[in-house]
Design a protein around this nucleic acid. Structure first.
Lengths: 148, 148
DNA sequence: CTCGATGGTCAAGCTGCTTGACCATATAGT
DNA sequence: ACTATATGGTCAAGCAGCTTGACCATCGAG
């Protein structure tokens, strides 16, 4: 494969990723969750299962813990998360989603499903499913980093 | 397809996109082009064929023309681009890549090819090619937007 | 029961973007 | 030809989100 083809593939991937991010963000806002930015989505994803500490979150997002703490401040202020004392470590605080936070997470899933359904209209559901499996196999581990 | 599956697909796509961006950026820097940020890559892509005006660039990147102008300032300062008088419009200036700018573009293509080759090791070249075609078919038009 | 490591916050500063104002040139209307 | 409006571009100020640096509280190994 020539370099220029690899670049075209990369550009298409990044364009799809950018468009998807925008679609999800707009979909979430359209469902009544104001003041939400794409960066919050990745925080939600990390907090959803059982909550997480600020330091965990920072590592997951690939930013400093100060930045993660500010993000949590904002999510708390907007009613999506709350800080609780950590059950096993008095230094730490466990950040967990509120009911509104869970609702916002579901809204994001709905918006994502909407976008993915449109891909299905173009490619067929079978190909979309295959696409998902392939992407999972080449997805890097480590912190989630902004695409640019 | 369930919403949670669509979300998993989306997360994988964004993770791949973020990792790819980082790989390309690091690859470009490793090839001796310092002070280059991912955002520059999309500017290079727009400038490469025949140059572009600041306003074109702004529309392509989805930012204000002031922001695009600052980006061009930076690229000029670092030797990647230069401003020329526009041949057909005395108001406008045509921003074109310098030799160093072209070299940097080729370095980005090499870095992208490197990353894509690793995908080929995992998925097989046939699937990677199919992936590229599918992504092209679902890629949105309009300005390139950061993935988050 | 110290003492280095770790979780967290406060404060200050930087960078890349935005909005607002403005000038120069192009283009359409009369 | 002449004004009026639109368009390309820049300057300036402000803001949001991140960083670095300093610091305190608590943990856990010796």
């Amino acid at each position: 494969m020539q370099n220029s083809e690899a670049m075209a593939l990369s550009a298409a991937l990044l364009a799809v990723a950018g468009g998807l991010t925008q679609r999800i963000n707009e979909g979430v806002i359209a469902r009544g969750f104001e003041g939400v930015r794409p960066a919050h989505g990745f925080a939600f994803a990390r907090l959803a299962p059982d909550g997480a500490t600020v330091t965990d979150l920072a590592a997951h997002l690939g930013v400093t813990k100060q930045a993660a703490s500010q993000l949590v401040d904002e999510m708390v202020r907007k009613g999506y998360a709350e800080r609780r004392p950590h059950p096993e470590d008095a230094r730490a605080r466990l950040v967990v989603l509120t009911g509104r936070g869970w609702a916002c997470t579901r809204a994001a899933e709905e918006a994502a499903a909407e976008a993915v359904r449109e891909w299905g209209d173009v490619l067929g559901e079978r190909e979309v499913r295959a696409l998902g499996e392939q992407l999972l196999r080449i997805a890097p581990r480590g912190p989630i980093r902004p695409a640019w």
